[in-house]
Design a binder for these strands. Structure first.
Length: 551
RNA sequence: UGGGCUAUGGCCAAGUGGUUAAGGCAUCGGACUUUGACUCCGACAUCGGUGGUUCGAAUCCACCUAGCCCAGCCA
């Protein structure tokens, strides 16, 4: 169950005191990029808070800057949020409120709380002061109200060039909070907006627009991240002085940061352009679309986010914690089948006759509703190359070696007798004998095998491609190095191997390939050659021979 | 050096004056095992520091230290 975080407490108190009957929350992304796992916290929390207290959850695109926004991003974000299962009660755009925002700004102008300032951007910066020294008043600060009205109307009407002037709030140039030093309300920007096209040439700034958007929608609890904490005074100032009938409350929480992951837009764009990743939905990225393509179940994201709660601290969470929730969900939902990623041929020298069906093996040992599928056995098999070593390296080795017997899962015990190598000395074929009496399900107990490995009968196996992923960024490299110097060259590995035939593979279908991990069918798969992405590996306490560390 | 915020084990995170200081991840033992998986047992912190208030403090006060955010006509 989710931690009862401080925001729940606030909402419950507001409900109890009668301040609000129902909470109204919103997720307000700017449509200028992609959503990633970090955003999932905000999406899910806003969504669940509304749902749990029978309130309303709005999806609102905060599209107040036509220079960086695009309708394409709107569609992408809607798709990602819907995939997460966070269904919004209302879909809004900040740009739908442009007229009301303008009128509210005019209220400020008429009250003498805002003025048109002709200072250049550089001069505004120069007169703002800095962290320790107060700013100085603009020479335009005391313009008459009538003149401000006329000028602001002219701004809207397109009388001025970009940057010629701005509308500013008249607050306090000496405030220790930089946000209160006569912040800009409207800037002139002659450019086409994805939604309002050319209707406007002035656009409101975030600090002014956001509280009004919240107030207009009647948002009760406006959640945002910590860096907006010192914007709260300006948020409240605009709600009050613009005379908004409804008063939303801004509450800040900590961002969800996953250690050693790439989320920066510019950097991802570079990686895409350089061909390092396949796109914003590359399975190595923790963008929501990347996670979806990799095959991560949305349920895992929900559980992860809820386990973390909504703290006011900002830490870096280890991806392993996320991976554990992915395994958790897939453990329960993924059918088990066999796949050999890196095949090594095995010949059963004492096997005579045709391929046989050994048994019907369950798709899920703990849940018979998954059903079963036939397992084939024959003279030629494939096992995982890493499951054979000529000489048993140490007492922990639970796989195949010369003279040792292992169980082939759902089939027989086999004993390795000899092997061939190719001209490079690499093992080519392992010759084994099998013992008919050890058939799976027979209850044979006379000998204990040296472990259990998975396999595929050669003639019935289906060829397939497997993608294995590691962190895009090498976590062991010094964090002070630039990201490009920390890229992991092995972040994606492709294997050509085999998978059980007879199971249909459709895009997105997820499986556990026994002993190899959880995999999902990639969209690039074709009828005769499926492509699988490894969603997450199985946990393993296997210690590679000669090593102390687990791998 | 101005303002805002944060500080609980390797990583997250509960805890709001009296608890053996939850839980998850990771790690280390061990049991079980037709997945070295799962499951199951067990190990693993005195709460940034110092001083105070109190019968009693991670929880209250003071001071200190460390980290994060703020000087876009971005959001």
């Amino acid at each position: 169950m989710e931690n009862k975080h401080f925001i729940r407490t606030i909402i419950e108190n507001d409900l109890k005191s009668g301040k609000h009957e129902r909470p109204i929350t919103r997720f307000p992304p700017e449509p200028n990029g992609f959503l990633h796992l970090g955003h999932a916290r905000a999406i899910i929390m806003n969504h669940n808070l509304a749902k749990d207290y029978r309130g309303t959850f709005n999806l609102r695109f905060d599209d107040t800057n036509p220079l960086t926004e695009d309708a394409l991003f709107v569609e992408g974000m809607k798709e990602d949020i819907a995939w997460l299962g966070c269904h919004w009660d209302n879909l809004f755009f900040a740009s739908d409120y442009f007229e009301e925002m303008y009128e509210r700004a005019m209220v400020l102008v008429k009250k003498g709380k805002a003025y048109v300032c002709d200072l250049s951007a550089e001069d505004i910066k120069a007169t703002r002061g800095d962290l320790t020294t107060p700013g100085t008043d603009s020479p335009y600060r005391d313009r008459r109200v009538e003149e401000n009205i006329r000028l602001f109307e002219a701004m809207r009407a397109g009388a001025f060039e970009d940057g010629a002037c701005v509308l500013r709030a008249k607050i306090d140039m000496a405030s220790p909070n930089m946000n209160m030093r006569d912040p800009v309300i409207y800037r002139i920007q002659h450019s086409s907006h994805h939604n309002t096209k050319d209707a406007w040439c002035i656009y409101p700034m975030y600090d002014f627009a956001h509280p009004l958007e919240d107030a207009i929608e009647g948002i009760t609890h406006s959640l945002c991240t910590l860096e907006f904490e010192d914007h709260r005074p300006i948020y409240d100032w605009y709600v009050e002085h613009c005379e908004m009938p409804k008063v939303p409350r801004q509450i800040e929480f900590g961002k969800l940061i996953i250690a050693h992951q790439v989320t920066g837009k510019r950097f991802i764009r570079q990686l895409v352009e350089a061909g390092v990743v396949d796109g914003w939905d590359d399975p190595r990225l923790i963008t929501l679309s990347g996670l979806r393509r990799r095959g991560v179940p949305p349920e895992a994201i929900h559980r992860f986010v809820q386990a973390l709660g909504l703290p006011k601290t900002e830490g870096e969470t280890d991806v392993e914690m996320f991976n554990e929730y992915v395994r958790d969900v897939m453990h329960a939902t993924a059918p088990r089948i066999h796949a050999v990623l890196d095949p090594l041929k095995v010949v059963i020298t004492n096997y005579e006759g045709d391929v046989e069906t050994v048994m019907n093996a369950p798709f899920h040992k703990d849940d018979e509703t998954f059903g079963a599928r036939p397992v084939h056995f024959g003279r030629e098999l494939y096992i995982e190359r890493s499951d054979f070593l000529p000489d048993k390296p140490d007492k922990h080795w639970k796989r195949l070696s010369l003279g040792l017997e292992v169980r082939l899962m759902h089939a027989y015990f086999i004993r390795a007798e000899s092997f061939d190598t190719d001209d490079r000395g690499q093992v080519e074929t392992v010759y084994c004998t099998y013992d008919k009496r050890t058939k799976s399900g027979s209850g044979f107990k006379e000998r204990k095998p040296n472990g259990t490995i998975h396999f595929l009968e050669a003639t019935s196996a289906k060829t397939a491609t497997f993608h294995l992923f590691e962190n895009l960024v090498d976590p062991d490299k010094d964090d002070s190095l630039p990201l490009e110097a920390r890229l992991n060259p092995h972040s994606k590995q492709a294997f050509s191997g085999f998978v059980e035939a007879g199971v249909p593979f459709e895009e997105g279908d997820a499986f556990q390939f026994t002993r190899n991990g959880y995999f999902a069918v990639d969209r690039d798969a074709s009828e005769d050659r499926p492509v699988f992405n490894r969603v997450v590996a199985l946990k393993s306490s296997f210690k590679a021979p000669g090593r102390k560390k687990r791998t």
